[in-house]
Amino acid sequence: MPVLANAIDALLPQTQCGQCGYAACLPYAQALAAGECGPNRCPPGGDETLVALAGLLGQPIVPLDTRCGETATPRQAHIDSDTCIGCTKCIPACPVDAIVGASKRLHAVLTDECNGCGLCLAPCPVDCISLLPLAAETDPQRTARPAINRRRHQARQRRLAAHAVTEKPVPTPTRQSPEVQTALARARALLATRRA
């Protein structure tokens, strides 16, 4: 089974988005290899991935399970510098460490590293992150993208595992500091005026 799971994983786009219902691409590949789910649960992979998985598994091509989402053009995250409050909630959500920043400082997306998964959108309290269409890539760039995403995700997993072993967990504050509450209120007011 590990050989089949690795072959399946190699066909996935490596966005690590979780739309398939699994935590990342490899767990989905392992479940698919074990026969626990169907090969039609990867919206970022689109028709190309559906065809490739069906061919590998010797199964008929079935339409994408739209309960997992819709296929979209490749995208990248963008942070609005006028709205970002530096809360850092987007940083741990990124499965490929493509967001940089420090507490109470403007954050930025490393555009060459962003996989467009969209996992950074939900934790942002001020909705300062949007997904924009990815600039046109050459065929070699598009082909290399999954391997880059996989390497970055694996590097992040190793970093988190090493951190868990060497560091004591930092207690999570139960309340936001007055400064963060003030920044959130200011950002929400700014957003309200822009939307009006």
Rank of each mutant, 00 (worst) to 15 (best):
C42K: 04
C42Y: 04
G45K: 07
A72K: 15
T71G: 09
E48C: 04
G45F: 12
G69E: 00
G45Y: 02
I61P: 03
G45C: 08
A52R: 11
V51W: 11
T66G: 00
L64D: 06
A72D: 15
L64G: 00
C68E: 04
L57A: 11
G45H: 06
I61Y: 04
A54T: 11
V62R: 13
G69C: 02
T49S: 13
T49G: 04
G46H: 11
G58T: 09
I61Q: 12
G45V: 08
L57W: 13
L50N: 01
A54L: 06
D47K: 11
V51T: 13
T49K: 05
R67Y: 07
E70S: 07
G46T: 14
D65W: 01
P63K: 06
T71K: 04
C68H: 07
T49I: 12
T71C: 03
V62D: 07
Q59T: 12
I61N: 08
E48A: 14
D47P: 07
D65Y: 01
G58A: 10
A72L: 15
G46E: 03
T66N: 03
I61A: 06
A72H: 13
G45T: 09
L56W: 06
A54V: 04
A54Y: 13
G58N: 05
A72P: 00
P43C: 06
A72S: 11
T66L: 05
C68W: 02
E48H: 08
G58R: 05
T49A: 07
T71I: 07
P44L: 11
D47Q: 14
P43D: 06
R41G: 00
V51P: 00
T49D: 02
G55F: 01
L53S: 05
D47G: 06
T71D: 02
P43H: 10
D65Q: 04
G55W: 00
L50I: 10
C68S: 05
A52D: 10
Q59R: 15
L50T: 01
D65F: 01
G69N: 06
D47L: 12
V62L: 14
G55S: 14
G58Y: 12
V51M: 05
G55D: 14
D47E: 15
R67D: 15
V62G: 04
C42G: 08
T71Q: 02
T49V: 15
Q59Y: 00
P43Q: 05
R41A: 01
V62W: 00
R41Q: 07
A72G: 03
G55L: 10
P60T: 15
E70H: 13
V62Q: 15
A54W: 09
A54F: 09
G69S: 07
T71M: 00
G58S: 09
G55Y: 00
G45E: 02
G45I: 11
L50M: 07
C68K: 15
E70R: 15
A52Y: 13
T66D: 01
T66A: 09
D47W: 08
A54E: 02
A52F: 12
Q59C: 10
V51N: 04
V62I: 15
V51H: 14
P60V: 14
G55M: 03
E48W: 01
Q59F: 03
R67V: 09
G46N: 13
G58V: 14
L64P: 04
V51C: 06
E70V: 10
E70F: 14
L50C: 08
T66Y: 04
C42S: 06
